[in-house]
Nucleic acid binder design. Structure first.
Lengths: 145, 145
DNA sequence: TTAATTGCAAATGATTTGCATTTCT
DNA sequence: AGAAATGCAAATCATTTGCAATTAA
């Protein structure tokens, strides 16, 4: 965990960005809630607990910055807010998501199931894939009868 | 084309919704631009050409209604506006999208490549899939060197 | 020192809603 | 007739931006 934080800090500094307490607190919150898909507002409230003086605009700016640095994914599940998800350390691709229409939970599949499809895409459509997004809607194992 | 319109009309009426000229014009525009991914504003402007008295709120309400009836997909490509895409006649699933990061084009793959994955999901994760969404980002054949 | 960053408040832009009026069925 | 649908304007809500004050490097 320390290592992850340090790495992200380094990425910020390597690009010439300052490491402010607000940014540090935001990264910390993201790391501590890695399995959730927090909205900017969610992050704001969590950061506020430790650093009450932070402003919502700063959170938006920080999340946008981390998104540009490819540290977080920015996702939209259609509920009107953007959600932010820490990118896995190793993989360059998005997670796949299992969205339960019963309880609203969002689980993740960390494996990459799409490599064969991407090769086919390249051959049949001449499309060079950089990234992808795969979400499933349905009923999760917890809600099933 | 006539058949598609009639079918959609029937779906509306079957659920007890009225078939107003505004709804008809909106469906017509969607059908005539099936390969695009129009925003509500786009649809509004196109409908306005034939039916100038229509209001933007009505377009939003109609698109929402068609979405509930599963006649159109509502998509969000992360540019801040919802986009609407007529659902294929036969398939119950979303199209797959090829989003070019160079020219911004959005192409569609009409085949469903995910059935094998969905079976695996059911077995390994206990997740019962109703629908899915698969988008690829990359460079399209037109922009490739 | 000094360019980057922050917090706040105001601005923006997409979408939604209240309501009086009109229109399908 | 009567419920459903419309157009307009006002309201809402997420996100962005201008700016003067602060702060990390």
């Amino acid at each position: 965990m320390e290592a992850r934080i340090d790495k992200i800090k380094q990425q910020l500094q390597a690009q010439g960005y300052k490491l402010t307490p607000q940014r540090e607190a935001t990264v910390f919150v993201l790391l501590a809630n890695e399995d959730d898909h927090l909205s900017a507002e969610d992050v704001f409230l969590l950061v506020k607990e430790k650093a009450p003086e932070i402003g919502l605009a700063t959170v938006y700016r920080t999340l946008e910055l981390l998104h540009e640095l490819h540290v977080v994914e920015k996702l939209n599940f259609g509920d009107g807010v953007a959600r932010y998800d820490l990118r896995a350390d190793n993989s360059k691709h998005h997670h796949h998501h299992l969205i339960c229409t019963e309880c609203g939970s969002v689980d993740e599949i960390k494996e990459d199931w799409l490599l064969p499809l991407e090769e086919r895409l390249e051959k049949e459509y001449g499309f060079a894939v950089d990234d992808h997004r795969l979400d499933f809607q349905g009923i999760c194992h917890r809600c099933k009868p």
